[in-house]
């Protein structure tokens, strides 16, 4: 069952296109990590999904229907910039949530506040940026939501608290919640997410199961004495998705059987040749890199 459905989302601000024809479906219980360079449209996508920005075109739904104020009873959104009432003290804000959310779990909130070492007698405005994020996250997880949308949830947190955030996401997912989060840190996505979506310039450039994407391809790297060149026909081989050349090094991203590609490159007499498994970072860089020699370019 799909918890989040985004179909052909386009959002333009004046002439500027922030998101272009983005479609994404997220299964119930799945954790989807949204990766992309700054300005690639991640936050705009979140805002459209949550009804905080009006899409230029396209449809968005959570549990099959557009988000309404009522939906927020079971959905938690932690924006990248804090939108907390800064004049409140931490405990006052907690009390406000307790009165507002039916499913608010005060014991859980206290537990998380202790985990993040929050001083409940402090005013929000007096907290560091990281601590404000911790407050927002505590409140989000304490409402026991079915759906979590987290925009850069670990930014501004130190590594220990970043790990706490990952634990919280995993705990929520183990309890059946669906999570969509954006991150700059590929390592976080690699651990917590079972699904990755990569955006660039407002478009979805790659989307899939993390393990499947990793298993699908290998990198065959050959080092030559002189400038690297690809053998005839390699670029048009359907198994070769991409070829990168950098001076004496040639890298081929190969699907399925890499042994044949290795043999063909070996025939050119390289100094060395190795086969690597793809990390999520390779996948990410491959998907967003500008200089990416598309198949055949310049060969």
């Amino acid at each position: 069952m799909k918890t989040i459905t985004i179909e052909h989302l386009t959002k333009r601000y004046g002439e500027q296109s922030a998101v272009a024809d983005l479609s994404l479906e997220i299964d119930e219980g799945s954790v989807c990590g949204l990766l992309g360079p700054n300005g690639s449209g991640k936050t705009t996508t979140f805002k459209c999904l949550l009804g905080l920005a009006r899409p230029t075109s396209g449809t968005l739904a959570v549990h099959g229907a557009p988000v309404t104020p009522h939906t927020f009873e079971t959905l938690a959104y932690v924006p990248e910039r804090n939108t907390l009432y800064e004049w409140m003290m931490v405990f006052e804000l907690f009390n406000l949530y307790k009165r507002t959310y039916k499913k608010y779990d005060a014991a859980r909130a206290a537990e998380l506040a202790a985990l993040f070492k929050l001083d409940s007698r402090k005013r929000i405005e007096r907290l560091s940026k990281g601590q404000q994020t911790a407050v927002a996250l505590t409140l989000a997880f304490a409402t026991r939501p079915d759906v979590l949308v987290l925009d850069e949830p670990a930014s501004g947190l130190d590594p220990i608290f970043q790990r706490v955030v990952l634990d919280l996401i995993i705990d929520a997912a183990a309890g059946g919640a669906t999570v969509l989060f954006s991150s700059h840190q590929i390592g976080q996505v690699e651990r917590a997410a079972d699904r990755v979506a990569i955006m660039k310039d407002g478009r979805l450039v790659l989307d899939g199961n993390v393990d499947t994407l990793k298993g699908e391809e290998k990198i065959v790297e050959a080092v030559f004495d002189g400038d690297a060149f690809a053998p005839n026909g390699l670029a048009t081989d359907p198994r070769v998705r991409r070829i990168e050349r950098n001076g004496r090094i040639l890298r081929a991203y190969v699907r399925n059987d890499s042994a044949d590609v290795v043999r063909r490159l070996e025939a050119l007499g390289p100094k060395a040749i190795s086969v690597y498994d793809l990390s999520l970072e390779d996948i990410f860089l491959g998907a967003v890199s500008d200089t990416a020699a598309r198949n055949g370019e310049g060969i």
Partner: peptide, 18 residues
């Protein structure tokens, strides 16, 4: 359990379940 191991390793529960 899937949940315990997922939390222990900090990996997605679906990964452990798979």
């Amino acid at each position: 359990t899937v949940k315990a191991l997922a939390l222990d390793l900090t990996v997605n529960p679906n990964t452990v379940a798979r």
